[in-house]
Design a protein around this nucleic acid. Structure first.
Lengths: 132, 132
DNA sequence: CAGAATCCTATGTGATACTG
DNA sequence: CAGTATCACATAGGATTCTG
């Protein structure tokens, strides 16, 4: 796939007095959920596979993140009773529909990482002149 | 404007071993930044105007959020020395480029709010059978 | 392998009161 | 008007240890 299109038919004002946005974004907005959704975009993964590809995540946080996503109906959890046990995580249809928005935002993040970093350095340099 | 198009030329794998995504998303991922960016999309606003339109935000958090966005080069702060003082906040070009990705995600959030809510209720109902 | 349990710290967030 | 300062609390997140 070479290019994906996403319509944004809303005006800025459409997001009106909407705590709903905050509400949903607070799930997607934590440190790990987006990364997990991105990685699951290419197919189902087992717990430790996810742990490997989501750089820096702790076991605890991966568990918590997956539970959260499962609760929100974004990820499905499939247990295969065997020894050793096998648990596969996969995006639900709803989860897949989230993949695009998340990918858009991540692309932006990657593309503008350097600019942001530079802006931060400029900002911090100014602050240092005032303080101390 | 009836529809905006955003290309996502990345494969899932492009987001590779990327703490960069986490890094940038942790700013945009807090409780308020996205809302502020959305509201500033239609033009500059004063401090108290923002406080009014960003539902539920406290004075303290608005200040902190704006400082963060300013530090990242997403928002510019213009002080007009007068009595009473006037401070205008506006998206920078970089901030404007973020508006689209954020709008995409917010649109998704609004569109799927109800589905998520239902999924949560199903999940919680199951949990209650097991516990207590 | 896939986690659960426990402990601990840092940060986010809100409420309130005060200021130039 | 546009903040700052302070306190107080909940949650996020990591490290470590244990288990079916």
């Amino acid at each position: 796939m070479s290019g994906r299109h996403i319509d944004v038919p809303f005006e800025a004002d459409t997001f009106g007095s909407c705590p709903a946005v905050t509400e949903v974004l607070s799930r997607v907005g934590d440190k790990w959920s987006m990364q997990v959704v991105i990685r699951l975009g290419s197919g189902s993964l087992r717990f430790n596979e996810l742990k490997r590809v989501v750089t820096g995540i702790s076991q605890r946080m991966l568990t918590r993140t997956l539970r959260g996503l499962e609760r929100d109906g974004l990820v499905s959890r499939t247990v295969t009773a065997s020894v050793p046990p096998r648990v596969d995580y996969e995006l639900t249809p709803l989860g897949h529909s989230l993949w695009n928005p998340v990918a858009v935002l991540s692309s932006w993040a990657l593309a503008n990482r350097e600019q942001i970093h530079q802006a931060q350095e400029r900002y911090d340099a100014q602050e240092n002149n005032d303080n101390l």
